[in-house]
Design a protein around this nucleic acid. Structure first.
Lengths: 212, 212
DNA sequence: GTCTATAAGAGGATAGAC
DNA sequence: GTCTATCCTCTTATAGAC
């Protein structure tokens, strides 16, 4: 994984090794054209590199694609790590919801999601890698929050409900807004991230909130 | 749109016109390989027809794809029309949820959704056509149900909450289970359609149910 | 490692006979 | 409408010089 970054030459761009230049170009081309329609020629010219150079670093088109996907998934879901501080359960759920929605609605994240979905039947490792760094971590975060709120007596959710509720909570974040983005339909008017997050938090609280 | 079905010949298969045979073959090939990787040769041989015959009925590859998509979307979402009878709000929401999840979890529906997502950036009409016959109708159904339950005094949801709640409700149906299917990751153990539907209905009831 | 040039083949679309 | 045969472009991947 750690590559020999002997990158002491030229500097028309912020000093990328050839390998990184290829990866960056691959990202652009694959996300724009999709896997099958993307050509190695397009990647080469976008990276200002010859095709042979690409093949010196990556075995074939598929390997390049998988390397790019792994690369970008890690980056796209980094934001999941941060945890906020909060006063009450509603605020905590609301803020996690907003944070998560902003993450998945980012244009690059949407484009990445699209190509992963498109190719996952033929490239199962791609779908799996995405699922493990994205949705799996997100569900862990939600479950942690539920547990923490329970311990602080800010929420009263039975442990056996948690897996189901974590899925439903994340599902609400990925609702119509995300669907529209991913099938390239203009966003609906009148519906905002904040409004949806507010609604989702309220539903959980109505069922499991503690009345003080 | 209405084609001349002079279909009085041969019968090794349940008597399809050439055009229908091509559409059926196109469905198989496009759903298996994705748009770009699918070849007209493959469609031709799967339909037991020459390539020239395909081009006699469809202008080009793209037109064939769009025709197939329109065709299948209509069929896949037909089930949305039926409306059930019910006694109480929880049962009504539960049954709509189960019905909807079964619809979108059907293998053909998942495969169709995948290719539509994959190509929608390049073929916007495809994404739009899908959205209009699927998600739009689904949201109408949910909103109708909310309204009906309100009128029967089985639910007490303010009209201004309905758009948000309809989206959240449908989002819960399209949660982790559907995501796994669409990125080709094996389904989780312990989570069932019934359990998720039960949870989703309960959340709505907890917030908007009428206490009798 | 990086380049230029090229091999080898697949795939969209059409010409022309029937 | 349907077929066979073919055109021509684009694409993956490599050979061989530096």
């Amino acid at each position: 994984m750690s590559r020999p970054k002997k990158n002491l030459c030229c500097g028309d761009k912020p000093a990328l090794s050839k390998q990184d230049a290829v990866l960056a170009a691959a990202q652009e081309v694959f996300l724009e054209a999709g896997y099958a329609a993307a050509s190695m020629d397009a990647v080469a010219s976008r990276a200002n590199v010859s095709k042979a150079t690409i093949y010196a670093h990556f075995d074939n088109k598929r390997a390049l694609f998988e390397a790019m996907i792994g690369n970008r998934c890690e980056a796209a879901f980094e934001g999941l790590q941060v945890s906020a501080c909060y006063e009450d359960a509603h605020q905590a759920l609301y803020e996690l919801a907003v944070h998560f929605m902003r993450l998945i609605m980012a244009p690059e994240a949407v484009a990445l999601h699209r190509v992963i979905i498109g190719e996952s039947p033929r490239l199962p490792e791609v779908g799996e890698a995405f699922y493990n760094v994205g949705p799996t971590r997100a569900r862990q975060r939600v479950t942690e929050l539920f547990t923490d709120l329970n311990q602080r007596k800010l929420l009263d959710m039975p442990v056996e409900d948690m897996p189901t509720m974590a899925d439903l909570f994340l599902g609400m974040m990925k609702g119509d807004m995300h669907l529209r983005a991913i099938v390239n339909v203009p966003p609906a008017e009148g519906l905002s991230i904040e409004r949806l997050a507010e609604g989702a938090a309220s539903l959980i609280i109505a069922r499991y909130g503690v009345t003080s």
